[in-house]
Design a protein around this nucleic acid. Structure first.
Lengths: 167, 167
DNA sequence: CGCCAATCGTTGCCTGTGCAACCAATACCA
DNA sequence: TGGTATTGGTTGCACAGGCAACGATTGGCG
């Protein structure tokens, strides 16, 4: 089996080459982009990733419930809960009870929250743009489509989101 | 200013649409693939992501130092340190002092470690394959190339050092 | 109508990990 | 040669976030 102890200290038979393993490469890319963005929304505005997502979602939809912040279970509900609590304490988000269903609450940006949103969003978009600047528009579209298909497939392979469905 | 308060409770002017924001989508995909893989190496073999990476790297290169486990600062050195310590305690990895430079130590898989490697690796590859099964070989190559270019670019935009792994 | 199940959101607990300070060993250089 | 800078690796500290149990409310079905 294999080449014994020749060449360059390669193990008997390398089954996985990490640098070519797709999940690894996606994770590395995700980490790098997160890190690039964190320079902006964390360092400069004191926003965590969950907080940033809440802000952006509310900037997009005006008012939403906490559950809507994590459309596909992308964030855990406890994560959302704490992010919203922090934003509320900072006066960036307000809650109004939903009188039709008092289990949930409406969330919305305060003027201060919207101000931050309008400051951070363009900067985030600028980072995205610099990132994508190495791809042609054509390639960007291709990438988006591929990511979509992979994401759909990954959702099938990942553990069901209804994990907490059983009491 | 835009359409006022028409339609569907859209905010004044949505600057960022989260679902189309590339860093977000990459992060979501990364999270899903990690989650799919975690079913295997975490649930079934009790390996964290850092531990998995150490095992794979050692399966690939026989012996390496701890620093080699994180080629581009992909993992923080403290993360590697603790992962190695845990693997050593479980008897999956051994350390030999490097007499030429006693600051570092050589790492290698024990027979038990290699056994786990040989059990986990094929399963991980199977997940990758199921993931990629929605793409043609052509598309897979395209994706790999695009990810590479994005990763290179992201490395320029990210702060020179710390990047972390998704859980 | 009444009871059980499901849903929204919060919180205590615990693990993982980034950060920075630190130790030991080596490299660099005047 | 001696002193300082660098590097490999570890560890205390703090904090984020997943999990699960919980309270409150609502829905569904007999």
């Amino acid at each position: 089996m294999a080449t014994g102890s020749a060449a360059k200290k390669q193990a008997p038979e390398p089954l996985v080459v990490l640098e070519q393993f797709l999940p690894y490469r996606i994770n590395v890319l995700a980490g790098l982009t997160s890190s690039a963005l964190a320079q902006i929304y964390a360092d400069r505005y004191g926003l965590s990733i969950p907080a940033w997502r809440v802000i952006v979602t509310l900037g997009q939809y005006e008012n939403r419930t906490a559950r809507d912040m994590a459309p596909d279970g992308v964030m855990h509900k406890s994560t959302v809960s704490r992010a919203v609590a922090a934003l509320e304490k900072r006066g960036l988000v307000v809650r109004r009870p939903n009188l039709d269903d008092r289990r949930e609450e409406w969330l919305a940006l305060t003027p201060e929250g919207r101000a931050i949103y309008e400051a951070v969003a363009p900067e985030a978009l600028a980072v995205e743009e610099r990132l994508l600047s190495v791809l042609t528009p054509q390639e960007q579209a291709t990438l988006a489509a591929l990511i979509d298909r992979l994401t759909r497939q990954a959702r099938l392979l990942a553990p069901q989101d209804g994990v907490e469905a059983q009491t």
